[in-house]
Design a protein around this nucleic acid. Sequence first.
DNA 1: ACCTGAACACCGTTCAAGT
DNA 2: ACCTGAACACCGTTCAAGT
Lengths: 239, 239
Amino acid sequence: MDHGTRAEPRERLSRDTVLRAAVALADEYGIARLSMRSLAEVLGVVPMALYKHVANKDDLLDGMLDVIVGEIDPPVEEREWRDVIRRRVLSARRVLRRHRWARRVLETRTAMTPGVLAYTDSFIGMFLERGFPVDLTHHVMHAIGSRMWGFTQELFDDPEADPAQAAADAVPDQAALQQMAMRYPNVLRVAMASTHDDGVVGRGCDDQFEFEFALDLLLDGIGDRHARGWTSARPGADR
Amino acid sequence: MDHGTRAEPRERLSRDTVLRAAVALADEYGIARLSMRSLAEVLGVVPMALYKHVANKDDLLDGMLDVIVGEIDPPVEEREWRDVIRRRVLSARRVLRRHRWARRVLETRTAMTPGVLAYTDSFIGMFLERGFPVDLTHHVMHAIGSRMWGFTQELFDDPEADPAQAAADAVPDQAALQQMAMRYPNVLRVAMASTHDDGVVGRGCDDQFEFEFALDLLLDGIGDRHARGWTSARPGADR
DNA sequence: ACCTGAACACCGTTCAAGT
DNA sequence: ACCTGAACACCGTTCAAGT
C-alpha cells in the first residue's frame, strides 16, 4: 500500500552494508546477476552512490570475499598436523558451499586482500607450528593450491548450473546415450560405475567423497615427504 | 596507401576461420579483449556476420577450446601407466601455456564439447588399458581434476597479469614489506624461502617445479591405492 | 546463402551538479 | 559528506532487410 515513495529514513550506506547486500544478492541470484546497477536497486539507491563506499566493481568483489573468508573456522587446538589441516579445509569447504559464487570469484582475482592473506598466513602457520620446514611448507602450499579453500577444480561440474541444464543432464535421451557409447566408451564406463545404484547417468558422484579422496591422497603424499625429510635441493641454489 | 576500401575479394568466412581468428586474437591480446565486435573487426566483417558460423559467444568459446585441445600430443606407446599419464599431462600443460586464456575458459564452461570429451575419454583409457579398475579410475579422475589439463589452481598467480601489476609485485616498497612482516609473518617466511637466491620477493617460484611436485604427490598416492587394491566400497552400494 | 544496419537492453564508470 | 542525473563508451543479440 505504498503509493509514492514511502520515504522511510533509509539507513545511510556504509561499506559494510554494501558488501553484505552484495553477498546476499550473489547468494540468492548468482554472481552473473550482480551488477553495480542491480545492487544499487536492491539498496534503493542510484548506481553512483555505491562508488562512495567501494572503489569499483573489483573492489566490491574483493570486499565480498573478505566478508565470507571471515566465516571460516579458526584452526582447532591440536598438535597433529594432519587433522588440523583436514578440519580447516573442510570448514572452508562448508563456507564456499554456502556461497557458491565465491569459488569462481576466488579463481578470478589475484585476491591479495587482507582477509585472504590472513587466512593464508594462518594456514601456513598450521604447518610451521607443527614442525614442517619452511622449504617443504612452501612446496606443499603450492600443491594444495585451491584445496585450501575446500574446492578442487572439478571438470564437468557447473557451479552455477541452471535447473534446466541439470534436468537435461539427468535424463539423456536414448539416442544421445548411444552416440556417447560409440564415441566416448571410457567416459561412459566410468560414469556408469558411479551411478548403477541410482540409475541415472548424470550427477551420480558424491562430491564430498571425491573431495576427501583427493585431499587424503595429497595429505598422504605430504606426510610421506615430511617423514622422509624431503627438501627441494634445487640445483643452482647457491647461484 | 589504401584509401577507400581496398575491396580484395575477402575470403568467405567459415567456422574454422572464425575460430582460428578468435584463438589468435585471444593469444595476442587476452580473452578480455575478445568480443564479438572486436573479432568481427579483425575479420573485416560486421559483428552479425559471425552468427552464421557460431551460434553465440559461448559456442565461440567452446569452439576455440576444441581447436587447442587438438594440439595436445596423443599418449605415448608404453605399458607403464605412470609415465604415460605424466607425459600426457605435461603435453597438455605446454599447450595451455601457449594459450594462456584457455585455462580460464576451461574453468568457466561446463565444457562438454566433442574435443574435450575425446581428450577425457582418451585420458581415462590410459588408466583402464593399463589395468586400473573402473571404480578406482573414477575416483582418480576426480582427484586429478584440472591437472589433466596441466594446470593446478594456484592461488596468487594471475594468468592474465598486466605487466604493470607484475612490476608492482616484483618491487614492493619497504613500508609495504614492513607491514607484511608484521601482519603476515608466515606468508613472508615462505615467500622468502623460495627467493633468497634471486633477491626479489614476488615471482620467485618455478611454476614447472611446483606443478611437477604436486603431480608426483598425486601420482604416488594413486600408485599406492592401486597397489593396495583400493576400492571405494561405499556403504549402501546395494541400496 | 551469406552479409548488413539499425536497434534493444544491458554493462561499468566519468563528470558536474545538487543538498 | 553523501547522493543524484545525464552521458559515454562499451557489451551480446534480435530482427528485418539487402545482394
